[in-house]
Amino acid sequence: MNSLYPPRMTGRPGRLEVWYATLTDPRTGTGVWIHHEVVAPKHGGPARAHGWISVFPPDGPPVTERFGVPDSPPPQDEAYFEVPGVRATPRLLEGTAGAITWRLTVTGGGEPLYTFPRWSWQRELLPAAQIVPAPDAVFDGELVVGERRFTFSDAVGGVARIAGHGNAQRWAWLHAGLGGGDVLEVVAAVARRPTMRWLPPLPMLQLRIGGTDWPRDPLLTAPLLRARIGLPDWSVAGGTARRRVRIDVTQDPADCVSLSYTDPDGATATCTNTERATVDVVVERRTGLHRFEVEHRWHLDRTGHAEVGTRP
């Protein structure tokens, strides 16, 4: 198995691990979000393995079903997540939860995208870190919601991971497939630690264009970016001396689901997610002392994957 997928908690209390896949069917615009999570309570006790699947059709409201067990058994073979009825491996996502059944193969993906610095994932020095093992994945297969069947062929999306002590105080997340292997990943968050929770959101950003990732160090660049987090609209803007970016995201309430998260310490958060976000991205490069010119521009019409998290 790819070394970026296996569980990392090894039974430690007070830890949270998440694996999530998001994808868009290019023919119909249907979006899918499959969220797998293992939570080890801070004060001991068995880890909880659970999650949900949300389907976002273009012609109706999203549908969500949950799955999981209170006591988490270790996954078997190449699986990185496994509970009765649901299994996830780097190459196959399958399961049944309520009225939804799915079986999706995962191919491609490109090189991993380190939204946070590589060392933060390897050494676990931050409260939490996110990584995208397959930022440009292709999904094929079928998904059934009640009596309705969806067939996916060359659906595009990504598979990402989070590991840490819990969810942020508030956050915004974006995965935007820009075409031709280009991709944008954004995590703008405020930490829950009492000394940090009143600070503005710190945006971690990785933009892959033509196989090159920018910025070189997302943590050093983060203070040069500004995030305005809200609903239905949020944005990130700023940049380095040579390049700057503007990202505008709209999450139509009709295309969103709101779900509750529970941290290892028992605190709760609410996430509002859509796999049908509208996204505008403008990248500019400096051409003079006070002059910038547009280098790239993208408009995603309800094909972006986005989320805003808040505390109750």
Rank of each mutant, 00 (worst) to 15 (best):
E82K: 10
P26L: 10
A47N: 04
P46M: 14
I53C: 08
P57S: 07
P62A: 07
H35N: 14
D59I: 09
G29P: 04
P62V: 09
V18K: 00
V86F: 03
R15I: 00
P61S: 06
P84E: 09
L93V: 08
A47P: 04
A40F: 06
S54N: 09
Y80G: 01
G11Q: 09
E82A: 12
M9K: 01
A88V: 09
L92T: 03
R27Q: 12
P58Q: 03
P74A: 13
T89H: 02
V39I: 15
I53K: 06
T64Q: 14
G14S: 12
R12C: 08
H43G: 05
H36F: 12
R48S: 14
H50L: 13
W33M: 02
Q76L: 11
P90A: 06
F81P: 00
A88N: 04
T28I: 07
Y5R: 05
P74V: 09
G14Q: 06
L23V: 11
L23A: 14
A79T: 03
K42P: 00
R91A: 09
R12M: 05
P7A: 15
V55I: 15
T22P: 00
R87G: 01
P75F: 04
H36Y: 07
W52G: 10
A49R: 05
Q76S: 13
H50K: 12
P74R: 08
H43A: 15
G51H: 01
Y80L: 07
L16R: 00
F56T: 07
T10Y: 10
R87N: 03
V83E: 08
G68M: 13
H36I: 00
P61F: 05
R48L: 13
Q76D: 13
V83Q: 03
G95V: 10
M9G: 08
L16Y: 00
G60I: 03
T89G: 06
V55E: 02
R66I: 08
V55F: 05
V63H: 12
R8Q: 14
E82T: 07
R91W: 04
A49Q: 11
R12L: 12
Y20A: 08
